[in-house]
Structure formats: C-alpha cells, structure tokens
C-alpha cells in the first residue's frame, strides 16, 4: 500500500517536472522547425555557424536572465538590469582605458554590477518599498551614472584579451565556441543546481510563494532578498563585461530596453511574476526562443517591427498556456 502511493506520487512529480520543462522546450523546437522548413533560409539557418552566432548573441541576455530568474521566483522584479549592464560595461572600458590591467577592468565591472544589485536589495528591504519602484529608480540612476562616467560619449579602450571573450572564432580553436558561451553554459548549470539542491534555492522559492510563512519558519527573508538582488547584480556585471567585449568600447546608451527582453525570457520559460515559480532551464529556453526568432526573421528579410510583434504574441501565448496548465493542475 505504502509503496503504491509512493510510486504514484513519484510519477506525478516526475510528470510535473517533465511538463514544466517540456512545454517551453517544445516551443523552442517549434521555432527552429518552422525556420528550417522554409526553403529560402533553410540551409543558412541550419548551419552550425548560425547556431553559434545565435548563441553568441544570447550570452548577454542569458547571463542577466539567470539572475532575473532568482529575482522573479522570489516574487520580485528588477527593472534596472539593462542600465546596470550599460554602467558595468562602461566601468570595464574606463578601467582598461586608464591603462590598468584588463583583469582589473573585468573585476571592476562585476563589482559594479553586484554593488548596484546589493543597493537594490538593501533599499527594498530597508525602505519596505516594492521592488518595482526601487529598481525603476535605479534604472534611471545607473543609466545616468553611465553617461556621466562616459561624459556622454563612448569610452574607447585598447583591444585586449577581454574582447576575445565574445569572439566568433575563439582562441585556442579547440574551444569551438566563444569563451562567453561556455561561461554562460557553466553558470546556467551551476545556478540550476543552486536553485534546486541548496537551502538558498529553496528559500528563494519559499519567499516567492509565501513570504509571511517563510519568515515564520525562521528564514531570514531580508538577508535572502539582499543576496538575491546582489546575485542578479553580479550577473548584470558579467553581462556588462560581455557587452564591452562585443562592442570593444564602453557605450552608456547600450542595452536600452533590454530589461524587457530579460524579463520576457524568464516569463516565457515559466517564471511567474507573482513568485514561487520558474526554472533556470526554462529561462534559458526563453532566451533562445527569442534569439532564434530574431535570427530567423532577419534571414527571412522581415522588418524589425514584425519581429517585435511576433515576440509580443509569443509572450502572451506562452504565459496563457502556462496559466491554463497551472489551473488544471490545481
């Protein structure tokens, strides 16, 4: 008797897990399938080189989406991510331009990103304001700071190894893909483990699901939240390094509006803006669904606005499918 119930619950939980991951994954396969069936773009689209360039384009959004996944699962939101990326990338350029060693620039970018995130988290918990407001304010502050630092221009910097991080053809060649892509894959795997198999991850879910209950159970909700936003900031910092690597200059006006892409990726991947739901794999799939759509549409010669409309629809469809599934389950 006992074994039987155990068996059924195990299969049901496994089924849920599969359903949570398979649904967005099918969406991604569908997007790829559609473009590979169109004769005009088929051979260009399906080339390994194209997949590689899609991956390279995705690194910046993907890194930031890793942090955003934690934020959204905890029931929060971070609107300042794109500004944070711009500021961090300018810091990298600034430091390298000043003649300091490139690794110091990379470190500086990451520290800047983390600092912004930690400030977000501290303000949210100490002022007890909703994350939307705090990070909306930070969106302006970080962007302004970036422009100030760059004196409203681009910050030039000498070419260094930092620029190889996002190179199409990596050095050494046995890497096959740009180091940035490898970094993205490694970090995604690590964060998936953190989210599922550590206490911190479980507490992130608990806060998003019912913050009062979490506090009652002795979880340090404030500290956990500060860490979550700090983590999101750290990923923005890395994303900023990649942004600089790709542009080779520090541009304070880069990534305007990118926060919406990042949030969209998490949401397409099953993250719930009311908290308690989401996964790293889902968010990564969300990133790639959007990247492949952009890539395919460009090959088809569709204008930019068509891509925007399609992605808009995808967000609505993905989330409403998710909602239907959720309701049926309850």
């Amino acid at each position: 008797m006992k074994d039987m119930t155990d068996q059924t619950t195990k299969t049901s939980s496994r089924f849920r897990f599969v359903a949570n991951i398979v649904a967005p994954f099918l969406g991604l396969l569908l997007v790829i399938l559609i473009f590979s069936l169109v004769p005009e773009v088929q051979d260009r689209f399906l080339r390994a080189g194209n997949f590689k360039s899609v991956a390279t384009q995705s690194v910046i959004v993907a890194l930031a989406a890793l942090g955003m996944t934690f934020v959204i699962i905890s029931g929060g939101i971070d609107l300042s991510v794109a500004s944070n990326i711009a500021l961090s990338s300018c810091i990298v350029a600034f430091i390298i331009n000043a003649g300091l060693p490139p690794w110091l620039g990379v470190l500086g970018g990451m520290l800047t990103g983390s600092a912004i995130g930690l400030i977000n988290g501290s303000l949210i918990t100490s002022l007890r304001l909703v994350p939307f407001i705090i990070t909306l304010g930070m969106l302006g502050i970080a962007r302004g700071a970036a422009k100030w630092l760059a004196e409203n221009q681009k910050i030039d910097a000498p070419i260094t190894w930092v620029n190889d991080l996002m190179a199409r053809s990596p050095q050494p060649p046995w890497l096959l893909m740009a180091p940035g892509i490898w970094l993205m894959i490694l970090l995604a795997a690590a964060m998936a483990v953190v989210l599922r198999f550590t206490m911190f991850g479980r507490h992130v879910f608990a806060i998003g699901s019912n913050e009062a209950a979490a506090r009652l159970c002795g979880i340090r909700t404030r500290r956990t939240k500060v860490i979550i936003y700090g983590l999101a900031g750290l990923f923005c910092g890395m994303s900023g390094v990649m942004q600089f690597s790709r542009l080779t200059v520090g541009d304070p006006t880069v990534a305007v509006g990118l926060e919406l892409d990042i949030i969209a990726a998490v949401v397409i991947g099953g993250g719930s803006l009311s908290g308690g739901q989401g996964s790293i794999l889902g968010s990564m799939i969300g990133v790639f669904i959007m990247a492949f759509l952009r890539n395919g549409s460009t090959m088809m010669g569709w204008p930019n606005y068509i891509q925007e409309i399609i992605i808009g629809f995808i967000i609505i469809v993905a989330v409403s499918l998710d909602q239907i599934r959720y309701r049926r389950e309850t």
Partner: peptide, 19 residues
C-alpha cells in the same frame, strides 16, 4: 502559513532543512 507552490515535504522542512 504555507508556501502554496512548494511541495508538502518542502513545507514541512521549511526553515529546518538538512544539508
């Protein structure tokens, strides 16, 4: 005072996880 998205086990162990 429960976290609705989390499982029964996760709720029971909440705040007293073993690691």
């Amino acid at each position: 005072n429960l976290a609705p998205h989390m499982t029964v086990e996760e709720n029971i162990m909440l705040g007293q996880e073993w690691k």
